[in-house]
């Protein structure tokens, strides 16, 4: 056993990398669910974003264009879900599951020929001055730009939902779409926009895995992260800061347990391996003791005539 071989700064820095894709996808889904829509297609949108971003980044040589393409790819796929559930009034659960299956298949098709290709490297951005702070600097301020984007988006989502009129309307639609409709808000339009936002975020999260975290394209490479993001939103009681905490906990404990294994710490490996799930759920369940509940209209279809 040799814990000294673990470098805590590297550990915390990789914690943030592990948390970012989860955070992006979960924040997107949070907004969707706050608008009263349950989209179980996160995994499908993530993997579609992963290949769209990868393909465009490889072909153009620009990782930034790749990220943009990932967001667009995720959003376009989610548009399919929006059409099915908001206009054709299809069952949201079935449509979401179908979207995941479709996304996995589509991405495998699009990804033909991209296996083993190396994507252009994403530049690490050291924030001037802040990066020089000992300990904190290397952990927080020498990451890639997507990490900053994800954190900024968490703050923005929180602020918009809590303090702006747009956020209030979005929440109203999610709590009681009939009342929101009676007040003259365009329920369907707002929900479609929320779904598109969720798709774009999931796409970004997927591209973060294929362009930065791994970096390569492999079929099915998101391997269930989309489902974890979905669960995270529920356990975080639909609150952005708790989503951030949950993502960091999950990513962090995961990286930590690998580190402890490699260092040969004498904790049985099977406990280490399940610890990310256990600890994340435990912490978030304890925190949600304040009885915050799901948006009241979550998963219910809306049609103006009903």
């Amino acid at each position: 056993m040799d814990i000294s071989s673990i470098n805590p700064i590297l550990l915390l820095a990789s914690l943030i990398v592990a948390a970012t894709p989860l955070l992006l996808a979960a924040i997107g889904e949070l907004v969707v669910e706050k608008a009263g829509v349950l989209n179980l297609g996160v995994e499908g949108m993530m993997i579609t974003g992963a290949i769209c971003g990868f393909a465009i980044a490889v072909n153009t040589g620009s990782p930034v264009l790749g990220l943009a393409a990932a967001a667009v790819g995720g959003a376009v796929l989610s548009l399919l879900f929006a059409l099915l559930t908001q206009y054709a009034l299809a069952n949201q659960v079935a449509s979401g599951l179908a979207l995941t299956l479709f996304g996995l298949g589509l991405s495998a098709l699009l990804g033909q020929g991209y296996q083993g290709v190396k994507p252009p490297a994403f530049p690490q951005v050291d924030i001037p001055l802040l990066a020089d702070i000992p300990v904190l600097g290397p952990i927080l301020f020498t990451q890639d730009p997507v990490v900053y984007l994800a954190f900024a988006m968490t703050a923005a989502t929180w602020a918009v939902l809590k303090y702006t009129r747009a956020g209030l309307i979005l929440r109203a639609v999610g709590e009681n779409h009939d009342a929101a409709h009676a007040l003259g808000y365009k329920v369907v339009r707002i929900r479609v926009l929320a779904i598109l936002f969720g798709g774009a975020c999931a796409g970004l999260g997927g591209a973060y895995i294929s362009l930065i975290r791994v970096p390569q394209w492999t079929e099915g490479m998101t391997a269930g992260i989309g489902w974890i993001a979905l669960a995270l939103v529920v356990f975080a009681s639909w609150k952005p800061w708790r989503v951030l905490l949950g993502a960091c906990l999950f990513g962090g404990v995961n990286v930590l347990q690998l580190n402890l294994q490699a260092a040969g710490v004498a904790i049985p490996v099977e406990y280490l391996a399940m610890s990310p799930y256990l600890i994340t759920i435990l912490v978030l369940v304890i925190m949600s003791a304040d009885r915050s509940s799901a948006p009241a209209a979550l998963g219910r279809s809306f049609h103006a005539s009903q």
Binding site: S5, I6, A18, R213, G220, V255, Q261, A262
Partner: peptide
């Protein structure tokens, strides 16, 4: 030998994490 158990056959992100951890540890 430093051995890390990933408890998965296929999870690229986790496999990459495991590789990075091992590299960080020498």
């Amino acid at each position: 030998f430093k051995i890390v158990w990933a408890y998965t056959w296929f999870d690229p992100a986790k496999e990459a994490d495991a590789a990075k951890v091992l590299i960080e540890q020498g």
